[in-house]
Simulated scan of single mutants.
Amino acid sequence: MNQHADTTTKTTPRELLQSIVSIPSVSGEERECAQRLCEYFAEHDREAWIDDVGNVRAPADDSVLLTSHVDTVPGEIPVRIEPAAEDDVPALWGRGSVDAKGPLVAMAVAAVSTGVSFVGVVGEEVDSRGARHLIENREEPGAVINGEPSGWDGVTLGYRGLLAGTYVATSESGHTSRPENNAIQDAMDWYQAVGDALAPDEWTPVFERVTTKPIAVEGGTTDDGLSVEATMDVQFRVPPAQTTEAIRELADAQLNGGTIHWYDDVPPVMTNPRTPVARAFRVAIREQGGEPRLLRKTGTSDMNLFADAWDCPMVTYGPGNSELDHTPTEHLPLESFDNAIAVLESVCTALISD
């Protein structure tokens, strides 16, 4: 009987990375990229599908859940492989190569090779709708490894929380020579008062501070000429030593006649470096010739939401330099990507056997 050899060629990890980075997936437009991930799992006889909100779901051994986000911020960077100016190491350039398609693809590859669960979530850059949906629609896994750039030899244990709102003030219109505040001044005074109340001393590390930041301001006389209105969108990054509830109360106490609508509230997180997950990473990084770095990030990630909902050990991990997030020079050294896959495979294997 004649037998024909299987000539099917499976996608290599680097090919998958370049393919995924080449597919634009700005928040809200992740579908094509999600489909490509499903195709990769199908190549390896793994079931995967796109759920109601657009997440890629590939359930398997739930001792470990590998999860990272499919979406990116806007910005076109020509996709190519070439060294960065500072070294001779080949790197993949492109929007999302660092944040967070490098971690995403490394996790997809490790999930296939070790047989653990995987989810590629959507909307992390805007409202984390994918992570929120996941929490509501699946059971708690044994452990979570969240994908964000930490460097292949770094493990992120903590993130600050996020509190975001819109301050609104209205005042009667009047001649600009009058000394009374108008709504624009009320908004400015409110922001200054909150900032003063939260001002740290100069020795406090950034991670341990509450950072205040206005992200949009509008104001002026209304169309009918009878009043002045002002709106200010603000964000507060909240360290684990404080709570978003306490910052909300402080900001509400300074309202100065205005009102504020709070539209996002994500608690801070700081995980224990002695969990089985963190230990497994330290061992795996050393096996690859690295010296483990334990990190705290000043931003916020989906791990904040997972930690608030699930009582299981977790960390955030992924190849890439987070200082390149959202920048026009975003690129990922391919050697770092390869190392991260090896580390993830070692960690998952160790956690499955425990």
Rank of each mutant, 00 (worst) to 15 (best):
S227V: 08
T212V: 14
V269Y: 03
D99N: 13
I285M: 02
E86C: 11
W93C: 15
D308T: 07
W93Q: 15
G257L: 09
K101W: 02
K213S: 13
R237S: 12
A216S: 10
A84H: 06
R36H: 01
S346M: 05
Q242K: 12
D189N: 03
I23K: 04
H133Y: 09
D302C: 03
I135S: 06
R248I: 10
E76H: 11
L66T: 01
V119T: 12
N182R: 11
A34G: 13
T170S: 10
A246E: 07
D52Y: 04
E125G: 11
A246T: 09
V206Y: 05
S173N: 11
E229P: 07
R57E: 00
S68F: 05
E30P: 07
V53W: 11
A216T: 09
D62F: 11
E136N: 10
T166C: 07
F207K: 00
S336F: 11
E229R: 12
D71A: 12
E29V: 13
L250F: 06
L66A: 05
D201Y: 13
S113K: 05
V21T: 03
N304T: 14
V210M: 13
I352T: 08
N146W: 05
P59M: 09
S173W: 03
P239M: 15
E47V: 05
D62S: 12
N2F: 08
G115K: 08
R279F: 00
D52H: 10
R14Q: 10
L92T: 01
G142R: 00
W152Y: 12
R129S: 13
R57G: 00
G75W: 06
G318L: 03
S353I: 10
V315S: 08
Q18E: 07
A193Y: 02
V228N: 14
W49A: 05
D338L: 00
T244E: 10
Q235G: 14
V70Q: 06
T67W: 00
D153C: 10
T7Q: 11
R279T: 06
C312A: 02
L295P: 14
L295Y: 13
V73H: 02
R274T: 04
A342F: 00
D186V: 11
I81Y: 15
R31G: 02
T212K: 13
A251D: 09
P292L: 14
A169M: 06
H69P: 12
N182F: 04
I50K: 00
Q235I: 15
V53S: 12
T243G: 03
S177D: 09
V266F: 14
G151R: 02
Q192S: 13
G318I: 03
T275D: 06
P240S: 02
A193F: 05
L65R: 05
T11I: 08
N321P: 01
D127A: 13
S63Q: 09
L157E: 06
E82I: 13
A34K: 01
L162S: 13
D189I: 02
Y167W: 06
D189P: 00
S22M: 01
